[in-house]
Design a protein around this nucleic acid. Sequence first.
DNA 1: GTTAGCACTAAAAAAAGAAGAGTGCTAACC
DNA 2: GGTTAGCACTCTTCTTTTTTTAGTGCTAAC
Lengths: 335, 335
Amino acid sequence: MDERKKALLKEIIETYVKTVRPVGSNSLCKKLKCSSATIRNEMVALENMGYIEKNHISSGRIPSELGYKYYVENLMQPKDLTGEDMLKLQTIFNNNELEVSDAVTKCLEIISDLTNYTSVVLGKNSNDNLLKQVNIIDLDNHKIIAVVCTDKGIVENKQFTLPENTNIDEVIKTSEMINKMLIGTPINKVSEKLEFEVKPIIAKKIKDYNTVYNIFYDAFHDFLVHNTNIHVSGRVNLLKEPEYDNTEDIKRIASKLEDESFQDMVSKIDGNEELKIYIGEESNFDDNVTVIKRKYKSGGEEGTIAIIGPKRMEYERVVSLLNYMVDKIEGKDGK
Amino acid sequence: MDERKKALLKEIIETYVKTVRPVGSNSLCKKLKCSSATIRNEMVALENMGYIEKNHISSGRIPSELGYKYYVENLMQPKDLTGEDMLKLQTIFNNNELEVSDAVTKCLEIISDLTNYTSVVLGKNSNDNLLKQVNIIDLDNHKIIAVVCTDKGIVENKQFTLPENTNIDEVIKTSEMINKMLIGTPINKVSEKLEFEVKPIIAKKIKDYNTVYNIFYDAFHDFLVHNTNIHVSGRVNLLKEPEYDNTEDIKRIASKLEDESFQDMVSKIDGNEELKIYIGEESNFDDNVTVIKRKYKSGGEEGTIAIIGPKRMEYERVVSLLNYMVDKIEGKDGK
DNA sequence: GTTAGCACTAAAAAAAGAAGAGTGCTAACC
DNA sequence: GGTTAGCACTCTTCTTTTTTTAGTGCTAAC
């Protein structure tokens, strides 16, 4: 892979990213300072190496997945942000009052807005959160709410209707007892502890322990199910990208964007790299997209931000944006 | 509008709903028991009345908005549910443990699933909820969470980082004081009361009251903003309807479905009818859809369910489904 | 009032033709 | 040996033409 080939591949990709049209040899003469025939010769070489491809025998070239991969690993040079991009982002970080999680979701919105891609943030799963407290709130002696709160500040609530003839004071007293036994337990161990440690003890002391036991059991079950901590911004942006100009693509991608299960996709990030780019089928989302993932960690919070765009993403710009943003967020920690 | 015309219009609409093709005179001969020529004569009459239209001079007829309107007001006969539909819905109502709000969202999912339309439920705005309590949870002497709960069981929370040198015990003590003054206040009056009744009193008693005051102020501000209480099910179903077979329609509707502002659309329901059908531009959502809205009210909870589908909706079936469902939900109350 | 018959219309599908963008290859050039 | 001009060739795309088809409106007879 000599220098001219590298320059040519870079040029083809960057032109294609802008125009979304196959790139012909003529249009590259000026940039590469040689004739179209020379470029054609080089193109044949790049095609044999698998970095570019043709739609049909007499069409211009488009980058292959391998080509994009080579580009992000060897050719692109994330530059400083443009003034415009910078300006938008700074308004967030000047606002010191924002909590980390609010700042992250705000950033997402702005990235989706600036790039016209879809962005997702997945907070770290709360499985290693510790139970801080469970509050039972009495609404009308008949309905109660159980509010579960962890040490990292995740709060969930669930409403229950008590069976007739239940003494509400008894319920609250029992729940306080259970509460004390559970505080500090990792959230995913609560069910277990409830069953094998708490139940035997309260069963002895309290005659009608079952109602309260079930409330705790259900509340934690729901907690683990609901506890996704995921935010999506700019869902339909992706649908508007020009390559998705047929109804099948749009419907398929729209379905995937609605399906909350794409959180699995976000959470998987190989190795311990901070930033990783997944192109096409590697994306684990759709063969026709690229996903760029970036981990962040600030004080108690950590998570992964993912940008979902077309394969011909503005790689340099998105990487710069993400890095700038995460630097700032992690900076909030030190302050 | 004689009987034969009514039968013809009904037949045209029901055929079109099934086939999504303009309906020709030949295909109706058997049903109407007359020749195609007779049907053509009647069609001319219906067209002059504005109930059906043609795409071009020699095409079959499709129902107009006026035609659909006449149909839902005069012709359709919501029938009993089919065994299949009934079966799916019953699994929910047999589950007595479900709270009303859970049952409603579960129903939405099933309706979206059965009909392939999009369904939305908008719970009544909590403005007339009364404040039940505000809990301050201390996470690590530096970060706290304020949990706001109303008498109807709506819970929201917000995290705060306390300024350096704040005495957390003082904060909790002050908040309990404020709490007592606010309990029972309608949620939308809280800010006012906080400013004009609570502030003067605590300002006298507590030297550094501002921190706590701001926490309450922000928490309620967020409460009112977040407090949408809206659930959507089957967003992309609508996109899959065969009439939306061009990218513009799909993108436009996808945008509208993503935009949370369609809650305004749901909340507007004229008069005090229980069920109302809005066709085409009346829908306040998109000219190419029909929205069927149904109010429900069960115990403390009330709200509106809306089904968004193509104009050639299965009106009879959807109306039956909604009525059956809401009857059951309201039945939960009495039990 | 109903219906058979027929001329007529517009869309949709298929076929044919013309233009354009770009390639691959050869042979000449520096 | 790398570079380039030249040219035949390929495939797409756009336009035009032709054919087919589904359905109408109207007239005249039943």
